[in-house]
């Protein structure tokens, strides 16, 4: 009937992957106990990416699957990267332009902090002043 048989992942492979996922969970909790400064986030993300890759490739069987599904996922991930990186180009570099005055930045910071403290009325009245 079918021209290609579906890949059947062996119980051994599934068990090893499950073991690896549990180990990596323990490992990420363990490494989070130490303050590695700038490496805290990259390390946690690297472990999470490794775990996600194991789930995608073995549990979701993408490694043995029709390649079109891998392309669909890759394009989706590409757009997530574009989404995050292009937004960071804005939010990380606000106020770096030479035509922004220091006073403007200080005003904005003050306004944002007031809003964050729940002091919305003060922020609103300040906004009304402008």
């Amino acid at each position: 009937m079918s021209h290609t048989e579906h890949h059947i992942t062996s119980l051994k492979t599934l068990s090893i992957v499950f073991g690896a996922l549990v180990f990596l969970t323990v490992f990420t909790v363990f490494t989070a106990q130490f303050d590695l400064g700038a490496f805290n986030v990259p390390l946690a993300l690297a472990i999470a990416l490794t775990k996600a890759s194991l789930v995608v490739l073995i549990f979701m069987a993408l490694i043995w699957d029709n390649k079109v599904n891998a392309v669909i996922l890759a394009v989706g991930c590409l757009f997530v990267v574009v989404f995050i990186s292009f937004i960071l180009l804005d939010t990380e570099y606000r106020g770096d332009l030479s035509n922004t005055f220091e006073q403007t930045l200080m005003d904005e910071r003050l306004e944002a902090e007031r809003a964050a403290m729940g002091d919305t009325e003060a922020a609103e009245s300040q906004a009304a002043d402008h």
């Binding site: 599904n69 669909i72 996922l73 989706g76 997530v80 995050i84």
Partner: peptide, 24 residues
């Protein structure tokens, strides 16, 4: 299955908006 993968990509994009908010 291909239809499911397309749906999963829309799910990833749904959550990515929240991950962007988190990142900022």
């Amino acid at each position: 299955k291909m239809g499911m993968w397309l749906f999963l990509v829309t799910e990833i994009l749904l959550f990515s908006g929240m991950f962007v908010a988190y990142t900022i």
